[in-house]
Structures are given as C-alpha cells and as structure tokens.
Design a protein around this nucleic acid. Sequence first.
DNA 1: AGGGGAGGTGTACGCCGTACACCTGCCTGC
DNA 2: GCAGGCAGGTGTACGGCGTACACCTCCCCT
Lengths: 242, 242
Amino acid sequence: MRTMAQQADTERRKPLNRDRVLRAAVARADQSGIEALSMRGLAQELGVVPMALYKHVANKEQLFDGMVELVVGEIDAPADGPDWRGAVRERVLSARRALLRHPWALRAIESRGTPTPAVLDYLDSVIGTFRRGGLSVDLTHHAMHALGSRVWGVTQELFPASPAADAADPAGRVDQGEQAAALRAMAARYPHIAEIATARAHDGASVVGGGCDDQFEFEFALDLLLDGFARLHECGWSSDGG
Amino acid sequence: MRTMAQQADTERRKPLNRDRVLRAAVARADQSGIEALSMRGLAQELGVVPMALYKHVANKEQLFDGMVELVVGEIDAPADGPDWRGAVRERVLSARRALLRHPWALRAIESRGTPTPAVLDYLDSVIGTFRRGGLSVDLTHHAMHALGSRVWGVTQELFPASPAADAADPAGRVDQGEQAAALRAMAARYPHIAEIATARAHDGASVVGGGCDDQFEFEFALDLLLDGFARLHECGWSSDGG
DNA sequence: AGGGGAGGTGTACGCCGTACACCTGCCTGC
DNA sequence: GCAGGCAGGTGTACGGCGTACACCTCCCCT
C-alpha cells in the first residue's frame, strides 16, 4: 500500500515548481480574466493550500511579473535585414498575436510601476530594429512614444465588447426585441456612433456588435504610423525643427 | 448648547448628496491613486460610516462611473467651423488636460465593461466633428480606431515613471552613487533604450528620469495620425481599396 | 398628531493577501 | 547508518475589503 499511496501522491503533486505555478496562473487568467485570479483560487486549482504558493513566488505582484514574462516569451524573435519597416511590423504583429491569446497581459504590464526585464528586453529590441534601419535616435525616440501601447500590438480598445450589444443585453441572454429596441434608442441618442457602427455592419458582420475587423483596424493605424515615420526619416526630419 | 451642537452637526455633515461623494472620491483618487480609494476610507474622510455611501451610489463600480462622468464633464465643448482637423485636435488636447488632472480616469473608463453615457456622448461628438468635416463614414470609423485611447488625449504611457529612475531608486530616496551605478548597469543591458533615453536628456532635462516632453510626444503622434487621415481623405481613400 | 421616507448607523459575512510558526520527508556529509 | 538541514507543504490568524440587512432618527407632508 505504501507504494500506491506514494504513487498517488507523486501523481497528484509533482513538486510544484515556479513554472507550474505561473502556467496555471496564465491559464486561469486566460479563462476567467485577471480580476478573477486570486492566490487562494489558484492554490485550490493546484490542489494545494494557499500559502504553498509563496514558496515559489514572493507575492501576487511577482506572480504577475512571472506571467508577463511567459507571455512576452511567446513573441517571435526579430527578423534581421535591411527592411526596418517590415521588421517592426512583423514583430509588433507577433506581439499582437501573443497579447490576443492573453488579453489580461497588457493590463498586467501597465499596472506594474516599473517594467520587468522581459519587457525591457522586448522594447530594447524594437528600438534596435529602428536604429539598425538607419532612423535617427531622435526620430526613433518619438516613434516609440507614438506607437505607445501599440508596440504590444493592441489598439487599447476603448471597450472590451460592443457597447450596443452590451447595452442591449447585459445579462448575456438573447432577446431579439429588446436588443433591437435598445439599438434604436442608442442610435437616437448617439447618432454618429450608430452611423459608423452600422456602416461597417453591412459588409459581412452581424448588424449588432462586433462589426469591426480588429485586425484590419490595427494594421490600418500601424501602417499610418509606420508610413509617417518613413516619410519623416526620408526627409531627414528632426524634432529640433528641420 | 443645542444650537451649538446643531450647528456643529450641520457644519460637519451637510446632507452629503451624491455630488459631494463623487467630488470627494475624485479628490482622493487624484491625491492617492485609484487603488488607494476604498469605500471605507472615503466614508471616513466624509466623517460618515461606510454604509452611508450606499445611500448615494449603488456600489463601487457606480462610484467610478460617477467619477468618470465628472472628469468627462471637464472636457471643453467642441469648436464649430470648417476646420475638422483643428477642431479634433483642440478637443483631444482638452481631453488630455482633463485626464492629466485625473491620471486614474483613463483606467477607470477602460476597466468598465460597458461605456457610460458621458463617455458615449464625448465619442459621439468627436465622430460628429470628423463627419461634419466631410470625412466619409468609412474613414471616420478607421480614424477613431486608429486614435484608440488617444481620443482621450493620452498616449497610454507604458510606464508611469522613468524605468531608470525607478530601478535606481525604488524607495524614492536619492542616492547619487547607487543611481549612477544602476543607470550604467541598465545602459549595458538595454543599450538601445539607454541611447534614446539619454539623447533626449541632454537638451534641458535632468540626465535621469523624466527626460521626455510628454506634451511634445503626444502632439507628435496626434499630428502624424491627423495628417494621415487628411491625406487619405483628400485622395478619397476607402477601405474597400480605393 | 402621525406616518413615511430619506439619510445615517451597527453588525455581520465572506472574500482577499499574506505573516508566522510548524511539520515532514528527502539528500547530504560523515 | 545516521544526524542534520533544508526545500516544500500546512494551519492558523490578522487586518483589510465590499456590501447585505436590520435598525434608528429625524423632518416633512397631510
């Protein structure tokens, strides 16, 4: 019997190292959102008492740091070559894919007062791509600021879901009549929002909610900025006014 | 004595309406950050028991909503006239001033799943300015997405303060030697970051931390985008590929 | 005079992060 | 073979949080 108990034991809890804790935390955050992630809940999921986690992460903030580290690690390595514009574009779009897989990650990155090494590595690397492409220190600096959180591949959506859909059906149930009514009410109060929302809607997407092609929107803005950088670079622009 | 007690009483707590609660909450968040704002702390500041607040706001989330409403109310009314570019620029910069006064506000806006009416009013109004300027529904839609959180006048700074400064001196004390050492270490590990950070530094600002002119950075990116919109508008661009 | 509602109170519950003392079983040096 | 240490898991406890619910206490209106 001793062997069986021992086996069950080792099976249920392999030593539970830092990595397993972090991966479990990431999975949980992916599924239920970062707000729903508590040390106690995470411990329970790992079949362990809450305080056990503290043998592997110093506190909740360092747990977040570790999670961010994992996500940033998913971003592809930078392409090398003379095409800085394409290289940055690829890299940012890769970051986008990683952050779309882990929607909580940007918030986690930003909520930290001081950036983690993994984050600094990524930023440093993007800057390096601009510099190797020949952009001046000055222009590169402003470009990074202009990209803002877009270096992470996200447009910092104003709202997670469609306002209209949410307003019409906050409970998540589907009621055609109420939904239509709420939509009409909204169109009356916010005519311009309704206009641009419905304009996108009739080329493919449903009339309510999620009518935007986020990927297109992101690339639109990214290219607008990259084009701007390229133009300024070509004409030797400098912030000193030249 | 009764009159005195009564006077002191009315003096200490005027009826405490919703507005007084919201303003106290805004002041507290301005001063100590949004994380430090608790119902209990707010109640104490107002000389009242925690549960008293719930007679004026339904819960903490609605408290945030009310606070956001106040901040959005500080944004100037839109200019009218044919110059849509200037009008949007002005409006966004006005939003920027409001949000700089209340650094917690953007986070509060974004953390809400569904936007508040005040927020929708503002967005609707900005969209209206584009439309009155003659931009197509299509272009306006993409422009709003491209602006992203920049419609609120913020570049969504990656970090609240300078990484170097924080890393060198997390406790907030000033130690010249340690600070310089940390700076050197950082320059070695993140050469490109160090390069663009120090480049800005030697025209005016201190060598460490806060070397960026945030206002300039914001206007740089904003104008890059507005110029892009204008260019696309002039040549009759459409996302259908024209 | 009395009834009711607006506004403030007190108590309590169930979460949370985490400090601290403790136990346990394996690995190591002798 | 065995003592000791230490990595890793446990149990208990504290103080903070948001807030449900029952209550009280005025003031105003009829």
